[in-house]
Amino acid sequence: MKLGDRFTQDFEITKVVYHGFIEIFRDRNELHTDGAFARAKGFQSEVMHGNILNGFLSYFVGECLPIRNVIIHSQEIKFAKPVYMGDRLKLQAEISGIFDSVGALEFKFQFQNESGTNVAKGRLQVGVLS
């Protein structure tokens, strides 16, 4: 892998993902579970948990990169727009830094929804295990 290499991966916020997240992490805040509450706060419906996207990033690093011996060192994400049930998201990631001295790669990434809006972006650092 080299500087500037780009990767894309498609994801979908399905009921299985949403209910699985709630079942595991128990965040049943009204914003995520009560449509009327979410609409009263200016959203179109229940807002999906932003940290579902962190799960997608975990899958990307663990399963989609061309190498398997990887570990996430750090991850930063900014949520720019809400994500809703059924949204199809495209993760676009680019290698923005290579640190051979310590076996680390840095990625810049963004998630785009189907209308091309960036809903989240950030950076993650991945270690390559020797």
Partner: peptide, 24 residues
């Protein structure tokens, strides 16, 4: 060891230099 990686990455980025693992 994990923070050591973050320190080296932080230093390389800040100073725009590259080290080798042998140097470190």
């Amino acid at each position: 060891s994990l923070n050591h990686i973050q320190l080296v990455v932080g230093i390389e980025k800040h100073f725009k230099v590259k080290f080798t693992s042998q140097e470190i």
